[in-house]
Design a protein around this nucleic acid. Sequence first.
DNA 1: TGTACATCAGTGAACGCGCGTTCACTGATGTAC
DNA 2: TGTACATCAGTGAACGCGCGTTCACTGATGTAC
Lengths: 203, 203
Amino acid sequence: MAMRYGPGHKEKTREKILDAAGKAFRKHGLEGVGVDGVMKAAGLTAGGFYAHFKNRDALVAEAVSRPLRQSRLLYEKLTQGLGGREWLGQTARVYLSRAHRDHPETGCPLAALQSELGRSGAETRGAVEAELESFLHLFEEKLGKSEKAPATDRAIVVLAQLVGALSLARMVKDEKFSDRILLACRKFLAEEFEAESQTSSAP
Amino acid sequence: MAMRYGPGHKEKTREKILDAAGKAFRKHGLEGVGVDGVMKAAGLTAGGFYAHFKNRDALVAEAVSRPLRQSRLLYEKLTQGLGGREWLGQTARVYLSRAHRDHPETGCPLAALQSELGRSGAETRGAVEAELESFLHLFEEKLGKSEKAPATDRAIVVLAQLVGALSLARMVKDEKFSDRILLACRKFLAEEFEAESQTSSAP
DNA sequence: TGTACATCAGTGAACGCGCGTTCACTGATGTAC
DNA sequence: TGTACATCAGTGAACGCGCGTTCACTGATGTAC
């Protein structure tokens, strides 16, 4: 019972697979779900997979970098006009929220797959690095430089803080403890990080 | 050709397995190496494994929490007498070093296994959480409180920064870029983090 | 408009392989006499 | 001191299972006449 509806539908199926894979990998890890599981989640059977992707590695690279790119584009729109402390406060509040912590499957792939990405092949690592640089450029623009550190360094520190804090919060078992980690780091970024920072709001 | 040398040798074999597993898991991930691979790395055959551990999960829990505990005990000795800025500067220099980045197999399990730990079973997560709390207590003592934040919050922020920065540095492909991540976060911790902190050096 | 055919996205069974785990066996050590 | 036996850490073959990948097949769609 094959269901096909004219041209353009292969592309839609491909996107369904990528969406399912993106969620499954973030939820269960890059090795926690197989081709069969991804295809089942997309409402398909395993055999059809190779009509869309060369092999499993190609799927991983795309399924990780795609949501990174998508959320950056969305995020650029959402924070348009914001900059400096205002921007940082809102970013920290959203990124270090309980909702984000409890739903890795729709959240940041960097935090969800951190250690596994460090061990991934060249294809995946390259795609991730490019997206990571784009995020840093955005952060630089929003944060600006300070008396002591250039904008790039400040962007790196903020990104490391965000990603590290969310990972720690997901690692601990006790929910109160986890909440405290989120709150402490959110407060730090919103209230203490380089209080004298020069804002350079985007146009 | 079984090699056995009297009492106490089973315990030594068990430790050899744990050492091999600790390194292998940090290098290849919790799912990147199997019982067979761990036993081979320890110079043994797969079958003998179950004389030492109930099952694979029991090995994982112990192989992750043991190096955490060991490095904390060592680290407590090494930083005895230090506190405040001096302590933080040295900690950042060692943790965010290129040597640490390039050798996850002997480094911090939190950074090496971050995302996988977030998905581990209750046994592993519980063991990790206990060790993580011990580290935070040590950090609190060393850092002390500031005008704006209690010691616990400051300890959490520093730990998140360390773990997040090392993970980012391991994720990117370009070495110069990776070096810059380490340097930026090291500088931040050593020179900018709450410059007016009250030191409370351990006795 | 209606029939015959080509296309090709998706199916589902099959493959070889490595995994975690089990178990009958081996053989060096420590003990009994 | 010397021989016979019990112990038990470690061996290695075997198991059932799920993985990534292949491939002959299916059947709804679009096209030709």
